[in-house]
């Protein structure tokens, strides 16, 4: 299909200068567009790497957060732990529920009114701004447990709400790609529908579901707004998601970025570098899984 379009007629004789110029102008504009997206990304990556990599050291990655932003010392260990805790808990909640919901939509509900409505609502939920998720968990969870409500678990609830529609949508897409005759073959052998889904349909769609879920996890790991009001702020390591405040990398970057102290700004760059590496690792493994194990 591109072979045809590549054989551009612009250079043939008989095409007026104006048309040729329009074509050249258009081609130039398209390349300019690509550059306009690529250059800022390159600059951003450059600054994060240059300013961030300089901070990295074992003590930076493991030390407690500084008690005051003015302090020269201090690391981001608790924020890394907080990010991992919140994201992992959110994934534990959102992925199984999202996959089950998608199974309902694609295997049971299909085009029924319930399924159509739920599909629509999942799209609505996907469009809700992440800060509104944070406010929501704040009003139903943090307010309910005055004083003890700001815990990592509250943050992961907000992140799970954010991930759920993404997981549902990508999983349903993957289930849709499973050929119908696999299901029919399983049924013909006498398997019940639930057994067919659990032993035939889901395994067939597993690589796609995994990569879609990991993209959702990557998105959640970098989110700040949902955890801003829900997990509090801790300077010390807290492995317990159900008690005591916690901190995530994104939140730490946000609170340090605007500080007038060079040490705080350097820490923010270091944390940004760590966060980007984390998110890219998740994204890259999602792509790898999708490419390596896809059933095509």
């Amino acid at each position: 299909m591109t072979a045809a379009s590549h054989r551009s007629g612009a250079r043939r004789r008989g095409i007026s200068g104006r048309r040729r110029a329009a074509n050249a102008l258009f081609t130039g504009a398209v390349y300019l567009a690509v550059a306009l997206a690529a250059v800022p990304l390159a600059l951003l990556v450059y600054y994060v790497v240059v300013n961030g990599a300089r901070q990295l050291s074992v003590s930076f990655l493991t030390d407690s957060l500084p008690i005051s932003v003015r302090r020269k010392t201090g690391g981001i260990g608790p924020a890394i732990v907080g990010t991992l805790l919140c994201t992992a808990l959110a994934a534990l909640m959102a992925i199984p529920l999202g996959v089950l919901g998608a199974v309902y939509l694609n295997e049971y509900g299909r085009t029924s009114r319930t399924a159509t409505t739920l599909r629509f609502l999942a799209n609505v939920l996907a469009g809700v701004p992440s800060i509104v998720m944070g406010l929501f968990i704040y009003t139903i969870f943090v307010l309910r447990f005055q004083g003890t409500g700001r815990i990592a678990f509250a943050g992961s609830l907000a992140l799970a709400c954010l991930m759920l529609p993404i997981v549902i949508r990508s999983t349903e897409e993957m289930l849709r790609l499973v050929p119908a005759n696999l299901r029919e073959a399983s049924m013909a052998l006498g398997a019940s529908q639930s057994r067919t889904i659990l032993t035939v349909v889901l395994p067939a769609a597993l690589p796609g579901i995994t990569s879609g879920s990991m993209l959702a996890v990557a998105r959640a790991a970098g989110e700040t707004a949902p955890v801003l009001f829900t997990i509090g702020f801790a300077t010390r390591l807290n492995w317990n998601p159900f008690s005591g405040p916690n901190t995530t990398l994104a939140q730490f970057i946000f609170s340090n970025a605007g500080q007038p102290y060079p040490a705080a700004v350097s820490r923010a760059w270091g944390a940004a570098f760590t966060l980007i590496v984390l998110v890219l690792l998740l994204t890259a493994s999602a792509r790898f899984i999708a490419a390596r194990f896809s059933v095509r």
Partner: peptide, 15 residues
Amino acid sequence: LAAVPSVVWGLWGFL
């Protein structure tokens, strides 16, 4: 571009 977290865009824009 899609994978860069919002807060990192903000940090870069701000600093």
